[in-house]
Nucleic acid binder design. Sequence first.
DNA 1: GATCTGACCGCACTCGATTGCATGAACAGC
DNA 2: GCTGTTCATGCAATCGAGTGCGGTCAGATC
Lengths: 359, 359
Amino acid sequence: MRPDQPAALQATAEPRRPQARQPSTLRDVAEAAGVHAATASRALNPKTQGLVSAATARRVLKAAETLGYQPNPIARSLKTSRSFTVGLVLPDLTNPLFPPIVRGIEDVLAPGGYSAWIVNTDNDPQRELAQIESLRSRQVEGLIIATARLDHPLLRKMHDEGVRMVFVNRRVENLDVPTVTADDATGIALAVKHLADLGHTRIAHLAGPQSTSTGVVRSRAFRHAIRDHGMADDPSLVVECARWSEADGAGAMRELLGRDDRFTAVVAGNDLIALGCYDVFAERRISCPADISVVGFNDMPFLDKLSPPLTTVGVPHHDIGAEAARMLLDCIEQPERHPRSVLMAVSLVIRGSTSRPSR
Amino acid sequence: MRPDQPAALQATAEPRRPQARQPSTLRDVAEAAGVHAATASRALNPKTQGLVSAATARRVLKAAETLGYQPNPIARSLKTSRSFTVGLVLPDLTNPLFPPIVRGIEDVLAPGGYSAWIVNTDNDPQRELAQIESLRSRQVEGLIIATARLDHPLLRKMHDEGVRMVFVNRRVENLDVPTVTADDATGIALAVKHLADLGHTRIAHLAGPQSTSTGVVRSRAFRHAIRDHGMADDPSLVVECARWSEADGAGAMRELLGRDDRFTAVVAGNDLIALGCYDVFAERRISCPADISVVGFNDMPFLDKLSPPLTTVGVPHHDIGAEAARMLLDCIEQPERHPRSVLMAVSLVIRGSTSRPSR
DNA sequence: GATCTGACCGCACTCGATTGCATGAACAGC
DNA sequence: GCTGTTCATGCAATCGAGTGCGGTCAGATC
């Protein structure tokens, strides 16, 4: 004590910013309850509560309550090497396909006490590596991956290292990792059938990247469906897009129109590619669906407000996310359980971009 | 060594899952370099590297390199109480307005070595509290908040506690927190001027929630602009939406049509509200823009593909996020610097939903 | 009354990195 | 040859929580 020093000076010495009264720790609780920190720890943890007498447990709980004690997740993670966090690896959050999936994931994780950490890779392997390393160094307990390519050494290596993961939408060739995808083949079959029923006989396909399982499955399903309906499997009616993007969809559509304009309908690899078609239609004053019908895939938000509203294959975004999260939690909490993969049911959403052919 | 035991059995004893050879620690590096862990720590940290001789620093760096050493962020956080993580509090990620903002934030954070942790509140104060507490317990170094309401006790309390934060899009009444918003008033003025120039004389406004600063600023700007153009400030032409949603926008439009259908144009509080108008137009076979012109706000993605393409006020989403992140980093790294707020410039994006009035 | 049992609790260490302090060596100056 | 610096490095504590092990004490048993 130095009574000669003005109190005011002492006060101004420290609190430049109103110090967020630092949260109480386990030791504080222990002290308040008159026990050792170890005892407080056991009393607070349901799994070890039996090691403590009921009376002291109550005292500790009460102390924790009045102090508003919140365990420090960082300290806990350091000691237990658990984080109750999972990583979510997306190509790009601005693709409207993903936010509903994210919400589905979070809705399942939250009740289990887990949270998701979202990163974007922009389909750049460098970025992907950096982001995944960042997630792993933060002790995520598993990863939900939406960026898989058929040939994906990084993911293959991680699988060999025993990293727990679940794929959504896409898979890696010959890699036995639990996966949840839409039933792509059925979706494409529905789309082709719809067009065939309308009377289309020359149907083109703007395929997604053949470096992704989704692109391969959908384009293979397209060719099967075409033949199933007695049409010729004409390779000149299939164009591959390098990426799942509007710009690539537009490019592919221009390519297609350059090759042959006698087709009357297009099955796009996904909705963004279909949007690319719309761009080209606007450019060249092609009328949809009068001149060309278009079907998309995914039923991402707001398609019903397009001009014309896009006919597409509806997939249960939210459920896909939820199911992926459930699968990952299973991997974490019941490692012995055999991993499973699921196909989610799809349905055709018929809107204004498809009609009978006019030619 | 127990040569009597078959090697195969030894192999199967342990590695059910190919153990992710655990990452090397600072002690491993120190040992490899033949120094103490403390020395290794100093050698690896640029700020303390001067305390170590150049020769040992080199040895340590090399050892770290060959071992592929990555510092454990959890242990570091525990000791330094820094996390290089900021929290990002959104109402709902599925609102297409936010993903581009998120990307803007990440683009600024990443070069600084920071990451963002995204949470959704669904505008539910309970959830918001829980999510923010979760973020704070994870030692986030600051928060970027997109859920502010004019009256927001939680945020006010956090500000009093010295929590570093930045608001985006909206603010809290009388709370001096750095904020980055679009120039709402100018945007609305541009919209009204555009409609007035087209010849509209009865212009309605579907206001956003008046519990948000954005809702208040935009509706006030609307009334000012109306008077500036010599029109009557008729309260029956303004309807408030309870939330910034398509459904509420539709409800408000129905209400407006019930009151008076002589208006020829609508300034919607934001794009989602404008989409609600589209829904009602479809419902009642009202033609846009022939019967009623509509202007939105925000220029969220894909509006150009609507039918009709929506005229709206364009805001620099990416830059808003980037600027918010910069401001937060300033708060963190230069606490003495006086906080600033910025208005981002907007521009009118004229598309097909506005035309001269037909009546 | 000595011994045993078992419930309860505290000690001390650990997780991995950081940092104040102390030690030691090398070297200059007298 | 002795003292005083300076620089490099090691020691040990710390962040907050979790946990193996051992100690204490009450009550039961013979």
